[in-house]
């Protein structure tokens, strides 16, 4: 595959991510994949890609690329200023790109993770069936070694011969990150939730927690009123996406895309995946609150969300509309 883009500057932390690495928990591999799967989905959709295509997850910003081919790109997620050849370009919209174009991402004004997709997707060699970069495991990414993008990297992708007209996602449909750096997470009670008394549960669900500095793709460590389960530890068991574990200090940790596959701390339940994307856009110092929903409500929300993703029509963009819309 020929190089579609050269990395001029990698930015703070830019990772190739596809949907994730599945079916390998039995050998201890985590899933990886996008932290904000909704924004990731829309970036691919705007480039007319299948949802499996690999995109770049840009944390905070600073990525600069030079195009080598004719293609289209789209940036979604965090409010990261985008420019193409020094001209401001809109997020949540596809843009035609020609060889020599310089694509520059500034630094996020709201949220912290942007998704840059290209028509046909980035096409690095997969590790265990996925390009998703997992630093801790040294797997995935451009060189299959878990490393983030580096200056000088050549990103393989296919030339897109007949470039479609630019498209955008309607304003009302955009899952923009919150402007006040907060997230509200819906939780399905589970695992050891019975080991948390009703008083402890009430405390957890009525409190606001702060996102700490030790938050990353593995998990978000929170700080707030300590909650104490009736058990200290459990036999290590499988951890699902969004699980909320509570170590001895009572400060909850929400486990995310790069979570460990097994662990021995009690868990009160798991955050609905649709809300993890909003949580992943919160930076240290931001706040999180929780509410419970039933497994049936969660299931309905997942089905309806999928239907919405499948059925939402994109808008075609005229040149003027594009220039006037920098949101």
């Amino acid at each position: 595959m020929r190089a579609g883009f050269s990395v001029i500057q990698p930015g703070i932390h830019s990772l190739l991510q596809d949907q994730g690495r599945y079916g390998r928990h039995n050998i201890g591999l985590t899933t990886g994949g996008p932290m904000d799967s909704q924004s990731f989905h829309w970036a691919n959709r705007l480039c007319q890609n299948s949802p499996q295509c690999a995109a770049i997850e840009v944390t905070i910003g600073g990525l600069v690329l030079e195009a080598k081919i004719n293609t289209s790109i789209a940036l979604t997620g965090a409010a990261i200023p985008l420019s193409i050849n020094k001209q401001p370009a809109a997020l949540w919209q596809s843009h035609r790109i020609k060889p020599g174009d310089r694509i520059e991402l500034g630094f996020a004004n709201a949220g912290c993770r942007g998704y840059l997709a290209v028509a046909g997707g980035f096409q690095a060699s997969p590790s265990f069936g996925s390009q998703s970069t997992v630093a801790r495991e040294g797997l995935g990414g451009l060189h299959q070694d878990g490393k983030p993008l580096q200056a000088g990297d050549q990103l393989p992708c296919a030339e897109s011969a007949d470039q479609p007209a630019n498209q955008r996602l309607a304003q009302a449909q955009r899952p923009n990150p919150s402007t006040d750096n907060s997230a509200h997470c819906r939780v399905i009670l589970g695992y050891q939730h019975q080991a948390f008394s009703s008083v402890q549960k009430q405390l957890f669900f009525s409190s606001t927690y702060q996102v700490t500095d030790s938050s990353d793709r593995m998990g978000y460590r929170l700080n707030g009123p300590a909650i104490k389960p009736a058990v200290d530890g459990i036999l290590s068991e499988g951890i699902c996406l969004g699980a909320i574990q509570v170590p001895a200090d009572g400060q909850p940790i929400v486990l995310l895309a790069d979570r460990q596959t097994i662990g021995g701390y009690p868990k009160i339940g798991s955050v609905l995946s649709l809300d993890l994307g909003k949580l992943a856009q919160v930076t240290p110092g931001g706040t999180v609150s929780f509410e419970t929903i039933s497994i049936e409500q969660a299931h309905n929300l997942l089905l309806l969300n999928q239907r919405q993703l499948d059925c939402t029509e994109l808008e075609f963009v005229t040149a003027e509309a594009s220039d006037n819309d920098q949101s």
Partner: peptide, 16 residues
């Protein structure tokens, strides 16, 4: 996916 461990088995299913 499945996560077998010491005393438990986590079964992750496709909700769609």
């Amino acid at each position: 996916d499945l996560v077998p461990s010491y005393g438990s088995l986590l079964v992750i299913y496709q909700p769609l």
